[in-house]
Amino acid sequence: MSSAPSVTAEKPVVSGGPRRWGEPLMHGLLWLCALASVFVTISIVLILLVESLEFFRQVSVVEFLSGTVWEPHATPARFGILPLACGTLLVTAGAAIIAIPMGLGAAIYLSEYATPVVRDVLKPVLEILAGIPSVVFGYLAIVFISPIVRSLFPQADVFNALNASIVVAIMILPMIVSLSEDVLRSVPRSLREGAYALGATKLDVTAGVVVPAALSGIMASFLLAIARAVGETMAVTLAAGKRPQLTLNPLESIQTMTAYIVETTKGDVPRGTLGYQTIFAVGLTLFLATLALNVLAQWILKHMREKYE
């Protein structure tokens, strides 16, 4: 610094300066916060794997994945996950069949037809709908929907898969609507105007231009909603019953993977027993299924998105 002219003498020099120990400290602390999320994932995977491995030492993976009977409390106990998986599939498929067309229709209405006033009312209402807790839908399913279903189909069980499908459909609908509406609205105006200029009707433009242009985002919203339905717990537990069975009849009582976990953990299962380990094995299956759906949705969003200027 000896070469520096006199002007610098009264001011702090450019180099050196006070030592700021707080900066690296905060950097480190914040890094730890971000790391926490990674740690959560690692602990999910570890806990599920460790306990599941214990389970699979006693029950073969083949039997678990291909067995058609789930009787964990019987002697001898039988652990075939297909009935639970089938229950989940039945409820999810039913919910998807109801919610996907309705959700897409509602999204199209909000994005293409609704006046700003209607949109400003409906969108917040849908957001509120998305915030209603799962257990409330379970109540609605038992108290109101089940009697309606049974009056239409007298042979239906009190708790049945259709019940669950209907409430899960209502639950995932807002998700489909708001995600799809976002992608529909992001389709540029010029594309619509191009089609109108050729004499197309609004239906032609919507179904032929706008929806195809936003298709990847719409598909992703479907997948995310389906993942949500697969993991849906309280409403399904209350509405669909507790009988694990391999059936495709939506009017019968079934049990989903999530409902089995609830049923088992409600009774205080001692650690180290096979009963305790089953919930981790089922949990692992559930985790992998939802993870696959989510990863697929993100992959679609990342790689298939149409780019507009």
Partner: peptide
């Protein structure tokens, strides 16, 4: 800046 290189590594 005042004959001190501001891009040298020690610069604060």
């Amino acid at each position: 800046l005042d004959d001190v290189d501001i891009y040298r590594p020690r610069t604060d």
